[in-house]
C-alpha cells in the first residue's frame, strides 16, 4: 500500500524528461589555437579574393595597381568583419541551442 506512488510519479516525469532533453549541441570550443587558425584562414581568404578581383579588373581596364590597392584595403576590412561575424555567430548558434523551449519537435520526414 505504502509503495509510494509519488516515487512512481517522479520516475515517470524523469523518463519524459530524458526523452526530450537529450540534445547534443556540439560546441566548437574557441581555444587560442583554433581562434588563430580561424582568423588566419579568414584573412588569407579575404586577401586571395581581393587580389584576384583587383588584378582582374586592373587587367580589364588597364589601370594597374589602382584596383588592386582598393580591393586590398576593402578586402582587409571585409576579412575583419567576417572574423568578427563568424565568431559571434558560432557562439550565438551554440548558445541558442539548450536555452530554447522544446516545443513540438516532430521531424517526421
Amino acid at each position: 500500500m505504502a509503495d509510494d506512488p509519488s516515487d512512481l510519479e517522479t520516475r515517470i516525469a524523469a523518463a519524459r524528461d530524458t526523452g526530450k532533453g537529450g540534445r547534443t549541441t556540439g560546441k566548437a570550443q574557441a581555444s587560442g589555437y583554433g581562434m588563430a587558425v580561424r582568423m588566419a584562414v579568414e584573412m588569407v581568404a579575404a586577401l586571395a579574393v581581393s587580389v584576384f578581383l583587383g588584378l582582374w579588373i586592373d587587367g580589364e581596364l588597364d589601370t594597374a595597381p589602382l584596383f588592386l590597392v582598393i580591393f586590398l584595403v576593402m578586402g582587409m576590412a571585409a576579412g575583419v568583419i567576417n572574423v568578427v561575424r563568424a565568431a559571434g555567430m558560432m557562439t550565438r548558434g551554440s548558445q541558442r541551442g539548450p536555452g530554447r523551449s522544446e516545443g513540438d519537435r516532430t521531424r517526421g520526414d
Binding site: A15, G19, T106, R107, G108
Partner: peptide, 15 residues
C-alpha cells in the same frame, strides 16, 4: 526519421 518518430510515439504511449 520514421524509426525515431515511431519510437518517440511508443515511448510517449508507454509513459
Amino acid at each position: 526519421g520514421r524509426v525515431l518518430t515511431d519510437r518517440k510515439h511508443r515511448i510517449e504511449q508507454d509513459l
